[in-house]
Design a binder for these strands. Structure first.
Ligand SMILES: [Zn+2]
Length: 209
DNA sequence: ATTTTCAAT
């Protein structure tokens, strides 16, 4: 298997795909920038990083899973004792996962306590409907112990420093970065809240109302 | 912006 696209993203491509604007028309692609760190390692500075783009018929999250064996050697067990090597995975995705990927990831991560996954997303994918499958998928990830967070300025900045061929050019925020990030963070927070309605209903039931 | 959404919801 060839090494992943470990080349850096161009500035234009990064901005185009990670811009957290609402009128993100015609991208038709999703990018995933990742950092993989081996935990409990004496060499705590060692990490692997790179980026992936979805391929036809394969969402980028599942593509990432297919590369896990390369990125996280020994995560299924290594050495004579078969101890599973522990990794911390952080990825920054231009879209939040669809419900299918979210459920597959949740199931996978539940079975892999030696892996920790943190997901940062620029935009929320199909989360407008109150009862959307994508919203449920995000809650499922949370229940599986996966941290899901909307990217803020510092995350875009970190990605620029880490994954972009920046040629000394400093990261420059686009119009509305902060406002959009705040709006999406609030939205995600509401999605991940345990349903207030149900809590209220439970409360009323307890009170016999 | 009434904005869009991984060969796609
Ligand atoms: Zn997906």
């Amino acid at each position: 298997m060839s090494k992943l696209d470990s080349v850096l993203l161009t500035q234009r491509k990064f901005i185009y795909h990670y811009k957290n604007v609402r009128w993100a028309r015609g991208r038709n692609e999703t990018y995933l920038c990742f950092v993989v760190k081996r935990r409990n390692s004496p060499d705590s500075l060692s990490f692997d990083f790179g980026h992936l783009r979805n391929r036809s018929g394969c969402h980028v999250e599942l593509l990432f899973l297919s590369y896990l064996g390369v990125l996280c050697p020994g995560f299924l067990g290594s050495g004579v004792d078969g101890v599973r090597v522990a990794y911390a995975i952080t990825w920054f995705c231009s879209w939040s996962p669809c419900s299918n990927c979210a459920h597959r990831l949740s199931r996978f991560m539940s079975q892999m306590p030696n892996l920790r996954l943190r997901i940062f997303v620029s935009r929320l994918y199909f989360c407008d409907q109150e009862d959307s499958q994508e919203r449920e998928g995000l809650r499922c990830l949370q229940r599986a112990g996966v941290q899901v967070t909307v990217m803020t300025y510092k995350d875009f900045f970190y990605c620029w420093q880490t994954f972009v061929a920046r040629n000394q050019r400093a990261f420059k925020a686009w119009d509305g970065l902060h406002q959009n990030s705040t709006r999406l963070s609030r939205k995600l927070h509401r999605i991940l809240q345990p349903s207030e309605c149900e809590d209220l209903r439970d409360g009323f039931a307890l009170l016999g109302l």
